[in-house]
């Protein structure tokens, strides 16, 4: 319970920072940064936070369902330009996953090959 409060406080602080600094980033993302900095300072994850946070993360996929159902309000636009929409979503997303994944894997391997002294 205490740690759920802590999570909400981080989110609230995030909202305040986002508003005051007029950042284009939503409050929860800044809240994540705040909690992350807190963990860095504390040098560890409290057990209770692991439990409450872990629960939220386990149900995370479900939390997108209400926003997803919002599709019903745009069925007419989707029907009119389904090719543009579907093409961009399916092909565009596949391309993005492929490019990001391949570049990251190449870069990680390249680094491991060229700079083994880094870890020593």
């Amino acid at each position: 319970m205490g740690y759920l409060t802590l999570i909400l406080i981080c989110q609230l602080l995030g909202e305040i920072v986002a508003r005051l600094a007029r950042l284009p980033v939503p409050g929860p993302v800044i809240g994540m940064v705040i909690l992350f900095c807190g963990l860095l300072l504390r040098r560890g994850i409290p057990e209770g936070l692991e439990t409450s946070g872990g629960y939220l993360l386990r149900i995370l996929p479900m939390l997108f369902v209400p926003a997803g159902v919002g599709i019903v309000t745009h069925l007419d636009v989707l029907r009119r330009s389904w090719a543009a929409f579907g093409g961009a979503v399916v092909v565009g997303t596949a391309l993005t996953i492929a490019v990001t994944g391949l570049v990251m894997q190449l870069a990680v391997r390249h680094r491991a090959k060229t700079a083994p002294a880094d870890t020593a």
């Binding site: 759920l4 999570i7 909400l8 981080c10 989110q11 995030g14 409050g27 929860p28 993302v29 809240g31 994540m32 940064v33 705040i34 909690l35 992350f36 963990l39 860095l40 994850i45 936070l49 692991e50 409450s52 946070g53 872990g54 939220l56 993360l57 149900i59 995370l60 479900m62 939390l63 997108f64 369902v65 209400p66 926003a67």
Partner: peptide, 18 residues
């Protein structure tokens, strides 16, 4: 349910820190 997206986003700091 939608509301919990905010706190869950904050909680992503946990795997990040780990």
């Amino acid at each position: 349910i939608h509301f919990l997206l905010g706190p869950a986003t904050v909680a992503l700091a946990i795997p990040l820190y780990r």
